[in-house]
């Protein structure tokens, strides 16, 4: 394969022309996005450079505990991002959500790096962290969608759930529709991604590998594994987390604890 064409500092700065176009559009059409575009650009440079140096450092260290520590930080950050999106205050769902996310992501990343790709050792940061990052990033969005949908539907359908409870349903039977809808909503984006991949879009990871000089046929293999991994981890995380959180929506007498009043 051909060598990677390196991007020099001046070439990198040349990329700012695209930002200039966006800024001009914002100015001409009074979009009021000027500040956001500037902040976004600075953050993109700062965050990615920081990450680049951090990854270089971590790859050099090649230490199991540091790799796992970073993985934990990524999972904790993801659970806080989920909390920010779901905005539920009545039901304590953070701990089970974090534990589900951590275990599910860890097992998936371990399976992919250790068994499918066959990296030795399985935790080699160059493989384990990017794979873990992709699992966490995608499943996190799915989980946020699923949990938000679960809470919303359970509140909207409170009368129906209570009617079913009153007619002898257990909490699982009374909320089966809401459970199903929540998990489906969480999984649809990753299933849709499988439908469109290669036709509608070229995934970022595969594009990155090709640009970096990898054989496209190898790049697609990686991408296929990643797509399958994302569907599996999304399904597992959404189902387990929604099952656990749904149980928490009911009290000891299987009474629905969610109130319909605005939180």
């Amino acid at each position: 394969m051909s060598q990677v064409v390196e991007i020099g500092l001046w070439q990198l700065l040349l990329g700012l022309i695209f930002i200039l176009i966006a800024q001009t559009a914002s100015f001409v059409y009074h979009l009021g996005l000027s500040r956001d575009i500037t902040v976004g650009t600075v953050r993109t440079f700062a965050q990615l450079f920081l990450m680049g140096y951090a990854l270089t450092f971590i790859f050099r260290l090649n230490n199991l505990w540091i790799t796992l520590g970073i993985f934990v930080v990524m999972a904790v950050s993801a659970s806080f991002i989920v909390k920010g999106r779901v905005k539920e205050r009545q039901i304590p769902y953070m701990l089970p959500t974090f534990l589900t996310m951590f275990v599910s992501y860890f097992v998936t990343a371990l399976f992919v790096s250790g068994l499918i790709i066959g990296v030795a050792p399985w935790w080699e940061p160059r493989y384990f962290l990017p794979i873990g990052g992709m699992v966490i990033g995608n499943s996190m969005s799915a989980l946020a969608i699923a949990l938000e949908r679960l809470f919303r539907e359970m509140r909207q359908q409170k009368d129906l759930i209570e009617t079913k409870l009153c007619l002898g349903a257990n909490y699982r039977e009374a909320s089966s529709e809401m459970f199903k809808n929540a998990v489906t909503a969480g999984m649809i984006p990753s299933i849709n991604a499988m439908m469109g991949v290669g036709l509608v879009f070229i995934p970022g990871m595969m594009s990155g590998q090709i640009l970096a000089g990898a054989d496209p046929l190898q790049a697609i293999r990686y991408q296929i594994v990643i797509m399958l991994m994302l569907v599996g981890s999304t399904a597992a995380t959404s189902i387990i987390a929604v099952l656990v959180v749904r149980k928490r929506c009911f009290g000891k007498g299987e009474e629905l604890l969610l109130s319909t009043a605005k939180q």
């Binding site: 009368d159 009617t163 409870l165 009153c166 007619l167 007498g253």
Partner: peptide, 15 residues
């Protein structure tokens, strides 16, 4: 709970 609610059925004001 399900056993109790099979024996004592509550019919809400707005069904």
């Amino acid at each position: 709970p399900a056993e109790l609610r099979r024996s004592i059925i509550y019919v809400a004001q707005i069904p």
